[in-house]
Amino acid sequence: MSYSPLFLSLKIASIATIIVFVVGIALARGISRKVFPGKSIVESIILLPLVLPPTVVGFGLLYLLGVNGPIGQWLLDWFEYKLVFTWVAAVIAATVVSFPLMYQSASAAFQNYDRNVENAALTMGASRIKVFFTISFPLAWPGLLAGLVLTFARALGEFGATLMVAGNIPGATSTIPLAIYSAVEAGRMEQAYTWVIIIIALGFSSVLWLNWWTKRNVISPNQNS
């Protein structure tokens, strides 16, 4: 039995998590506290992948990224690059599907502390970037970390959208959840058991670690005040 699904899963989930973490924080910070017309529509679109079946997300991505789709055709014409059925497509699927989890965690995290703490730093002469990295980010960190772990776990378990847009190609796009599916399909139950145990262990340990870390490190900003 090849271990490639494990490494492939870790690679795809890690890259997706990094993208989701950075973009999710930027977007949450930019949108969550602003008031503008159409805000609830924008937020609903961001959260849509959470409520849609992953196959629908995959269908949408296939439409956009497929060789006849607007983005897929453009990539093919200009870079002679076929995106669908590559591991990159699997990263995109995992990114889109796990994005709402990060966005929600980050939005909540940035609203969880006294806004005047940032204002105070501004009046003390700190630039907005300095305020973000020395005040906002550290104060939001517990929530951001929770979002990070959830995103990673979700990206690791992504199945439906990945199957639609990246297929199930051993060594290229066959991640653990897809490997489990093909193993069961082919009646290789031993192999399925192994992957099931591995993915339960990964998911369980990340959530366990998060709970442990939160209990140990998080002091509520509102404590005693």
């Binding site: 502390y113 006294d114 005047n116 703490v117 204002n119 105070a120 730093a121 501004l122 009046t123 003390m124 002469g125 700190a126 630039s127 020395t134 005040i135 550290p138 104060l139 002091i219 900003p221 005040s225």
Partner: peptide, 28 residues
């Protein structure tokens, strides 16, 4: 706001909860 050089003490003080008193005072 950053360039005005105006001190502001907020009603709930708005101290930085993740920094010691010393770091709070030295921040700006």
């Amino acid at each position: 706001v950053q360039k005005r050089g105006i001190g502001y003490v907020f009603q709930d003080y708005a101290l930085f909860p993740h920094m010691t008193v010393k770091k709070n005072i030295l921040y700006g």
